[in-house]
Write a protein that binds this DNA or RNA. Structure first.
Lengths: 223, 223
DNA sequence: GCAAAAGTGTTTTCAATACACCCATGG
DNA sequence: CCATGGGTGTATTGAAAACACTTTTGC
């Protein structure tokens, strides 16, 4: 560990793990690092905190700059302060969890082709720079606690969706499986859904019914 | 808002809300501020982070210095970055929640009479400096989520305790009441308790049975 | 018509709740 | 003996879990 240039912290950075659901898979958004150290490795979006901004302002701007995404749902997760997490300088990192629906994600990508970010399934994370793999792991744990909340589901599924889709998302994030009949029974009993009277055609097997969330739903926790 | 001396953060500080249970009451440990600004107001223990330490090391040392308490159970809660939270400089604060049993707390106080800290019931917090009242509020919310975990109970009640005592702690922290019979039934069904065959004599009414936690108990959540 | 995935209903089990009386101590 | 607080048992309710067959589509 090199000596630091002053007594108190040099830098505080933000990092964010943005989640989405793409074709039934839960994915996170990563950026490829183009310079040393860790050139070619992947990193989480984020930036150094300036004295004129809050952590939340900073990460909101960084997300727009580095991923093109606007209006991502944000929650602060954890602050990492290991002395060895950055080999060059003393950098503390505050991590956030972000949520965005896949349609918004796609639109932004088309508008900003220069962005070198990519979505990775949470079970198939590439080689990460610094301690970012640990940061992702902790943010996934954080999401596990939050996914029971209906608000996050509403962000992941702003438009029509099927019950099997939502069930698969729960199964990936919570790491367990549910009985289809019991899952449906419980979800419908919550009285959050509106039947669109449409079907999810074009796939194998019997088409699933499409639902959407009702407008004014109370804040409830599932599971 | 004054201008800052450089682009990146000047200071990162730690703050801790230490909880204990004293005669059935849930309390937090506060320190009286002896200099301006906010002279005479109360503050949370904590200190400025140096480049040679982690947040966790820093808060552990600060707790020992400022309160005399050793071996406090720690969990990081939240990082506060409002531009106006400190009127003198840009200071970011990472807050921790701490837990200590009342017997350890008392012993340390007797050994360190110069310490100017005091325990306050969580429903009767004095005038706090800076944004420390908000920090306490958020840390109490954090404790609410954690008190369901048996490990924290084991720290609060290392030695013999009665079921009505534990029930009262839950009621204070969660802010609701429980039926005595159902609380007891549920707690005993968890198979965490060992009957000491002793009674809590010297109080009004029928003496309560004294219990202790079994040695090798699995990690479970109540409620 | 067959493979693939979705929809549906019933029974059982267990935890949560509601509730009233008796017991042990201090004063 | 009485006030105070602690201990105990039962009945009800509701949610969770276990479980098998039928339906609709694509090919």
């Amino acid at each position: 560990m090199s000596t630091f240039t002053k007594d108190y912290v040099n830098y505080l950075e933000t990092l964010i793990t943005i989640f989405t659901v793409d074709k039934g898979e839960v994915k996170v958004l990563l950026v490829r690092k183009s310079d040393d150290p860790y050139k070619g490795y992947w990193i989480l979006p984020g930036s150094m905190l300036k004295n004129t901004e809050t952590l939340e302002d900073n990460i909101t701007d960084a997300v727009l700059d580095q991923t093109g995404l606007l209006s991502v749902y944000l929650e602060q997760c954890y602050t990492f302060s290991s002395l060895t997490r950055n080999p060059e300088d003393r950098v503390i990192a505050t991590s956030f969890m972000g949520i965005v629906d896949s349609k918004s994600a796609e639109i932004k990508r088309e508008e900003r082709p220069e962005i070198v970010s990519e979505w990775f399934p949470i079970n198939n994370i590439p080689k990460m720079a610094y301690d970012h793999e640990e940061v992702i792991r902790r943010n996934v744990e954080f999401l596990k606690k939050k996914i029971v909340n209906i608000n996050i589901l509403k962000i992941l599924f702003p438009s029509d969706f099927t019950l099997p889709e939502i069930q698969k998302v729960y199964e990936q994030i919570l790491g367990k499986t549910f009985d289809r009949r019991n899952f449906r029974k419980k979800f419908i009993a919550l009285d959050l859904l509106e039947d669109t009277n449409e079907k999810n055609i074009g796939f194998n097997g019997r088409p699933a019914k499409l639902y959407r969330f009702k407008d004014n739903i109370k804040q409830v926790d599932l599971f």
